[in-house]
Simulated scan of single mutants.
Amino acid sequence: MEDQGFVPLGYIPYVSLTFMLTTTMAILFLSSWVVYTIKTTRSLHKPHNIFVANLLISSMIIATAKCFISGTMIVSSAVGVESIINCHAYKLVQLPFLVDIISFVLIPVDKVIAIRSPFKHRRIMTPRNVGLIICSGWLIAIIPTAFRLVLDSDGVTNVPEYGTCVFVGKAFIEFLVAFILPTFISPLIATILNIYLTIKAYQIHKQITKESTLHGVNSQSERMTTLKKKQRNIKRHMKPIKMLLVIVLGSTIINMAFPPLYYIGEALIGSQAYQEIMQYMVAPNSIYLVLFLHPLVYGLYFKQVREPMMKHLRGVLGIHKVNSVAPQPQRTTRV
């Protein structure tokens, strides 16, 4: 590795550092709040929520590790000390990143099994098996991470002033395979599964409409009862899938928005300062926005999670619900 020698743009690195610290604290606070709520609320002890908790834990590790590595590089550069951490340390972030990607796949797969085979789902997704699946995901993620750690880092340029790295040649291909491709594969899988469940829901609705036409809207036939039960089951499981799709598509939009914005701005502005800000501050820090989406959507979108979260918050703050009905004044009788 070799350091790229240029003077950073004044206070810009400190703006980047402040942004990293602020968003990391927000991610840790909101994610740990959701995880704690899932852990302490018995009604949330379901495979889907356990996979969500695993996703949030890996997201917290990503944010903390990246903030620590980048922050150390920026502070060391500012005080004129050679940092003990360089771009090689970023390879360790691949472990929780791959767990994040695996969790994105596990959540819709769990819902597909629950819709297609609800009885098999109960036998397959036992607490023991869910734990084994999560452990297997972490073990699988260790393999490519360990492989990358022993590879040479030729083509990686340290930019300690901004706490980031530039990848060229062989290192860029390695970065592409390790981080960029999985970022697009997981949205693709989630989208395909979401389309499949949408088609399944439409087919059930069409069958109910046909049955209603033949036997009347208020038909209580065994087939109609079965179809309506399937429809309720699909609706119950579709909301988490749609929520996952919102997160995945939001993450994809954030990632894909950078190249056109960069080139449009370069054409209009074309200054060295703009290029450095986009390359060394905006692009590396966009991941924090993606990570913040996870607890924000999972914690606030679901009423089943949001209500116990608010309950825990009121308990911590010592706030208790009061009866909205004002007490009636007692009547007094004159003697």
Rank of each mutant, 00 (worst) to 15 (best):
A171H: 09
H48T: 12
F147L: 11
R236W: 04
L106N: 07
I57G: 00
V217L: 10
L249Q: 09
V282R: 02
Q328H: 12
K39N: 05
L296F: 15
L56G: 04
R331K: 15
A53D: 01
V246W: 05
V166H: 10
Q207P: 02
Q207G: 00
P47A: 07
G169W: 10
S324Y: 04
V322P: 00
Q328Y: 12
G131N: 14
I195T: 08
F6C: 06
I195V: 14
G163Q: 02
L30M: 11
S221G: 11
L245Y: 08
L30G: 03
Y298G: 00
W138F: 13
S153M: 08
L244C: 10
V93D: 00
H121Q: 04
I115C: 13
L296Q: 02
M278D: 10
V168Q: 13
F19S: 10
V35R: 02
K228Q: 13
E222L: 13
K46C: 03
I254A: 09
I143E: 02
T22Y: 09
P160K: 00
R236D: 07
Q4N: 10
G265I: 06
E161C: 02
V7A: 08
I208Y: 07
A283I: 06
M309E: 03
R314E: 09
F68K: 03
V290A: 06
S136Q: 03
K170V: 14
I69V: 13
I57C: 06
T72F: 07
I50N: 08
K120R: 13
M73V: 03
L197R: 04
N255I: 06
R314C: 14
H45I: 00
A114M: 03
I204A: 01
M224V: 12
T18M: 13
Y262T: 00
F292Q: 06
L98G: 02
K239E: 04
L193T: 00
L293T: 03
F147M: 08
V159F: 05
V305T: 13
A178M: 14
I192A: 15
Y36L: 11
E276D: 14
A146W: 06
L291R: 04
I264R: 05
I134C: 06
P47Q: 07
N86M: 03
L296R: 01
L21Q: 07
P327Y: 09
L17E: 09
V35K: 02
V35M: 11
S136N: 02
Q4Y: 12
Y274R: 05
A171C: 09
I269E: 09
N323G: 04
S251F: 07
D110Q: 14
R314T: 05
M1Q: 11
P144W: 01
S153E: 12
L188A: 15
W138A: 10
K91Y: 05
I180A: 10
Q231R: 11
L296E: 02
R42P: 02
L9R: 03
K206P: 00
W138R: 02
Y14R: 11
Y90Q: 01
G80T: 09
D110R: 05
G131V: 04
N49A: 13
